[in-house]
Structures are given as C-alpha cells and as structure tokens.
Simulated assay, not measured.
Amino acid sequence: MSIPSALIEEIRTASRTMVREFGFLRVTLAATDYSASGVHALLEIEAGDGVSAAQLAQSLGLEKSSVSRMVGKLIKAGEIEERAAEDARVKHLHLTSQGRQTVADIHAYGQAQVSKALNTLNPSQQQSVAQGLSTYAHALKTIRLGADRPLTPNLHISAGYRPGLIGRVAQMHADYYSRHSGFGAIFESRVARETAEFVGRLDQPCNQIWVATLDERIVGSIAIDGQDLGSNQAHLRWFILDDGCRGSGVGRQLLSAAVEFCDQQGFDAIQLWTFKGLDAARRLYEAAGFELTMEEQGSQWGSVVTEQQFTRAAAHVEG
C-alpha cells in the first residue's frame, strides 16, 4: 500500500513536536531527576508489580546492558529494590515506598500535562486524538515486535443500543462514502433516518446491532434487520468501520457476530447491498459465505454507482 509522502511528513512533524513538548529532549523528564528511560522504567515496574531486568529490557526496547546500569542507579537512589523470585537465579524489581511516591508524582505531572492540552479541544477532537494516538502507537509496537497485524488495545464489541450510536453510524458512513462515491447530504440523512427507525425496533428479537468501541468511542457497526425483507430473510445493514480500524480484524469480528446471530435465529438467508469497488469488504463477505447475486446501476444516493447484492444461504438449508 502506497502512503502519500505528505501524510508521512505531517505525522513525522507532529511526532517531533510531541517529543519536544513532552520534554524528551531534556536531560530529565516529568519533573524528576531521572532520564526518560528511567521514568519509563519506573512506570513499567509499577505496572508489572515485579518484573525482571530482562523483561524490562524487552518492554522498553533497550539493550540489557543499558537497563542493568539504569536499574543500578534506581536501586542506589532508593526508588526500587530487588527481591528473589521462585527461581533463585532470577530477581524481580519492585518499587520502594519512595518509588511509589515518585511514580505517583509522575502520574500527576503527566495527567496535568495531557489535561491542559485536551482542554483546548472540543470533545470530538479529544476522542479523535485518543483513538489516533492509541492506534498509531500500537502500529509502531507491531513493527518492533514483528506481529502479523496491528494490535488494537481496549477494543470491544458489544450488542445493542448505546448513546451516540445513530449519529456515529451516520457520520462514519458519510465520511467514507463522500470520499469513495461522492455521496452527500441525501445519503447521510437517509442513513441517519433509517438507523433511527431501526433502533426503535431493537425490542424485537429478530433485530440486533453491534458496535465496536475503542476507548469508549464507536469505531465500527453492523446490524441485522429481521423484519424489512420478509420471507424469513435477514437484511445485513450499516456495516462500517472508522478509518483507523481498517485492517485490524475488527470488521471480521463484527461480521462473524452478525452471521452467528442469523444462524441462531434460523433465517433462511442473509441479504446485503453494497457498491462495486469495495474490494476489502467483498473479500470479507465471500469469506463468510456470501455470493454476488445481483448487480445494477443506481442513482438513489445522489450519484450514479453500481450496486451489488450479496446473499448467504443459511447453513441449515445449504445442499
């Protein structure tokens, strides 16, 4: 995948600014007498509640010799202590009472720094910052650890309505399809109107909606409408992901939840309508057993597009 050079440079510039504003270029960090690596070591020891020097080196991405020297300095300063583990050959690092106070001060300093910056942003911008930073940080970690795909921390999938669902479903659709297909107000208003109408029918056992949330922000959705098609067929609707979650596997999880629900409800088939050219989504559909059953041009969304219908026959009627 080719990344625009302007986007890369924008992120690099922002990263350099953050490094400077957070104080990583200074000799000490977070109003302590310790370097950035020392501060991060204290935070990792607190989080691990007893880690070895080798584990610390791995989590910080530092050479063992560097960590050994840093650990010696922190022990001498009275911040940490070594305790024997079950394996006498291994010693675990723990905070002393002084170290716990130092870490508490570090947290207070960092929380105040972040809070002041976020107070200059509106709530939507605050959520975007949290999601973007979390996703990017774990993408960097993925590269370092050699994982197969980006790590997505704090991401949960849940069923049912939650506050803000209708607006976020409409917003994610509008954002994506305005770029992909040139859709505008007609499309967004229809998505919002039909989603709102569907939410009013969630009390029916044949209807359900699932959302993916990252740090409490909705970043994906999918729904099964068991009423509007009739003939014991389910309508899969509003399958959308926030740009920051594409390629993370969350789309597959959402689709699996919807398909499993349909099988449990005993629907004879699942129908969905989409647009030609959405190749990543099509691969997900086909992997889940959907087949292309119809294709035609349409203009109901404000611009001419090729609409596609995919169908998945239920397992109990296949063959």
Rank of each mutant, 00 (worst) to 15 (best):
E63C: 05
A212C: 06
K91A: 10
G61C: 10
M70L: 15
G164H: 14
H92N: 11
A280T: 10
S134N: 07
D263K: 09
F239D: 00
R100Q: 09
A212V: 02
L60G: 02
T293L: 03
I186G: 04
P163Y: 07
L29G: 01
Q55H: 10
A196Y: 09
E86R: 00
D225F: 00
V259Y: 11
E79P: 00
K141S: 11
V71S: 00
Q264I: 07
H94E: 02
A170C: 06
R144H: 15
S178L: 00
S256A: 13
F261L: 02
G160T: 02
A314V: 03
Q111F: 14
A196T: 14
F267W: 05
Q126K: 07
F198K: 11
R89W: 04
S66Y: 04
A54Y: 14
E86S: 01
V219W: 05
L272C: 05
H94N: 02
M18D: 01
R12T: 03
L214D: 00
E46M: 14
P4E: 09
G182M: 09
L272M: 08
D49V: 00
R100G: 07
L25S: 11
A223L: 12
A234E: 05
A30D: 02
T32M: 12
A85D: 13
Q131C: 11
P153R: 07
V103S: 08
T311A: 03
Q309Y: 05
S248N: 12
G78H: 13
T17D: 12
E307W: 09
T195W: 05
F187K: 08
E260I: 00
H156I: 13
P150R: 07
R217Y: 01
S115V: 02
R246T: 08
G244D: 08
A108C: 01
Q227K: 10
Q271N: 14
Q113D: 13
G289E: 06
R237C: 10
E286M: 05
V27H: 14
Q58P: 00
D215A: 09
S256C: 01
Q233V: 05
S2A: 10
G110S: 05
F198V: 09
E81V: 12
R144N: 15
L95P: 03
E295V: 06
D243E: 13
